[in-house]
Amino acid sequence: MRVWLACFLVLFALAELFDWLQEFNLPLPIYILGGAFLAVASNYDKIIGSYFADSSIEASIEQPQLDSLTSSTNPISFPIASSVEEAKTSQTDD
């Protein structure tokens, strides 16, 4: 009997709450701000997380390139730098 009484009270409270919410009105700017907040909150990881994810990806891509900046190992990526270094070495050999 207690379960039936508890279910009746919960359903009665939900029905009264639903009736009260149907009569509750907010101004239009509140709805617009609420929608904007929900849009930002639901896409937070895409908006904010992309900044941190992109920087870590760029750093991991740039690091091997920075480690191999010699004219003998990477002449195609930096043709100007390698030709300048070759010119310097040919001048010192003469």
Rank of each mutant, 00 (worst) to 15 (best):
V3G: 07
D19C: 07
L11F: 03
A6P: 02
E86R: 03
S55M: 08
S56V: 14
I76H: 14
V10D: 04
Q63L: 13
A41R: 07
S50F: 00
W20V: 03
E62T: 00
F78A: 05
S50V: 06
N74F: 05
V84R: 12
A15L: 03
C7K: 06
T70Y: 07
F37I: 01
D54W: 11
T73N: 03
S50L: 00
F78N: 02
E62A: 05
S90T: 02
S55T: 08
F8R: 01
I32F: 05
L33H: 11
I61W: 00
S82C: 12
I57R: 13
L5E: 10
F78W: 06
I57T: 09
V10H: 04
F12V: 03
Q91P: 08
N74M: 03
S56D: 14
S42F: 12
L26M: 14
A81V: 04
T89R: 13
F12Y: 13
G34L: 01
D45T: 15
F52G: 13
F37P: 01
D45E: 15
F12K: 06
I48F: 13
E16T: 10
K88S: 07
D19E: 01
Y51C: 13
S82W: 05
L5I: 12
D54M: 11
Y31F: 12
L11N: 07
I48E: 10
F8A: 11
S56F: 11
G35S: 08
E86N: 11
V3I: 11
D67E: 02
I48R: 08
S83P: 01
D93I: 06
P64M: 13
A41N: 12
P27N: 05
F24Y: 03
E86K: 06
T92P: 09
Y44L: 15
A13P: 05
S72F: 07
I57K: 12
Q63E: 11
D93P: 03
F52W: 09
W4N: 13
D67S: 04
Q22G: 05
T73D: 03
D45R: 15
S71I: 15
L66M: 13
